[in-house]
């Protein structure tokens, strides 16, 4: 990635502009996300949960792929968002869009608060601290069962009709439309962020965070900013899941969710805007298909998939494919 910066475009502005241009394949990708409505209307609930996982993976990509902050506790923000949306709804306010915003705000606030600690650490200590905070929060949610419903999950969530018009139906029609729209809007936000000078500074931090301040980019402030944004985005994803399924439980905060998220992102390709989305699609579709045929041993095939991707396409599916494409172009 560093070499790409050096080889293209004459001025930084031109480089950023070239990145910001929408490529045909991107437009094709987003058009394709509408296909499930027409082609597989029976899979819309799955499609909705894939869109949510994709948004969650995108939020991790912002900190991991772009700023080099490896987190094993990102589910903390997902869970905060999910519980916020769920609790607001339980106590009588089931309007989805305002619930979503409240959840994003609270997750962002917690993200901003913890970012002061996060920005001071690197490497293994950082990974373990995020893991530690995530586990502590999960235990806290378990012990505060008067608020969270504990291990049985939060009961009594009811999401009102979207915009007062669209009922969240059993087929997942509204759910997918809603999740996809939110994903698309936040994707555009992330895309603009990444293709801005701020995004470039983040990549600089990833490559060498000690040297960045020397060229006038305050590493810690940048890390705090992106960590807050990623937290809010993860909270939005959590709130979406809570609202569209009307369930929240401790699994939304669990280490397993953080780990699965990391697997999805790395599978798709970290440090690429579409990495999380592609990873979420492939992982969740593969799991749905494998577990449909062999509910007892499906994870064997998931394991084979992961090993195959690592050995055949290093740096994730998108990373591997772009390497192959680059080699092909050269010859």
């Amino acid at each position: 990635m560093a070499s790409a910066v050096a080889t293209t475009a004459s001025s930084p502005q031109a480089y950023l502009r070239s990145l910001a241009r929408w490529k045909p394949i991107e437009i094709a990708f987003w058009l394709a996300t509408l296909l499930p409505f027409a082609l597989v209307p029976n899979y819309l609930s799955l499609a909705s949960q894939i869109a949510i996982a994709g948004l969650f993976a995108l939020s991790l990509d912002l900190i991991l792929g772009y700023a080099g902050i490896v987190s094993l506790g990102h589910a903390a923000f997902f869970g905060i968002g999910a519980y916020t949306a769920g609790i607001i709804s339980k106590y009588g306010w089931g309007e989805p869009i305002s619930g979503l915003m409240a959840s994003a705000a609270l997750a962002g606030l917690v993200g901003w608060t913890t970012s002061f600690i996060i920005a001071r650490f690197r490497h293994l200590a950082l990974i373990m601290l995020t893991l530690g905070f995530g586990l502590l929060l999960a235990e806290l949610a378990n012990s505060m069962s008067w608020l969270t419903g504990g291990v049985d999950g939060l009961q009594g969530i009811h999401t009102w009709d979207l915009l007062g018009l669209f009922h969240f139906d059993l087929y997942g029609f509204t759910a997918y439309a809603y999740s996809l729209t939110v994903l698309f809007i936040l994707f555009i936000v992330a895309r603009r962020l990444i293709n801005s000078p701020f995004g470039l500074a983040l990549r600089g931090i990833r490559e060498n965070w000690i040297r960045m301040p020397a060229i006038g980019a305050p590493s810690r402030a940048h890390i705090r900013a992106i960590y807050t944004i990623a937290a809010a985005m993860a909270g939005t994803a959590g709130a979406l899941l809570a609202q569209t399924t009307e369930t929240v439980s401790l699994d939304s905060l669990s280490f397993e969710r953080s780990a699965e998220l990391l697997v999805m992102l790395v599978l798709g390709g970290a440090g690429r805007l579409y990495g999380g989305l592609v990873g979420a699609i492939i992982f969740m579709v593969a799991r749905d298909q494998f577990s449909g045929t062999t509910p007892q041993y499906w994870y064997f095939w998931i394991g084979v998939l992961l090993v195959a991707v690592v050995t055949l396409l290093p740096n994730g599916i998108l990373g591997g494919l772009s390497n192959i494409a680059a080699r092909w172009r050269k010859t």
Binding site: V263, V266, A270, Y299, F300, I302, L306, V310, T311
Partner: peptide, 12 residues
């Protein structure tokens, strides 16, 4: 990250 993915795959 590739090491993580490989070894998680082996664990599965």
């Amino acid at each position: 990250l590739d090491q993580v993915l490989l070894t998680i795959g082996i664990t599965f």
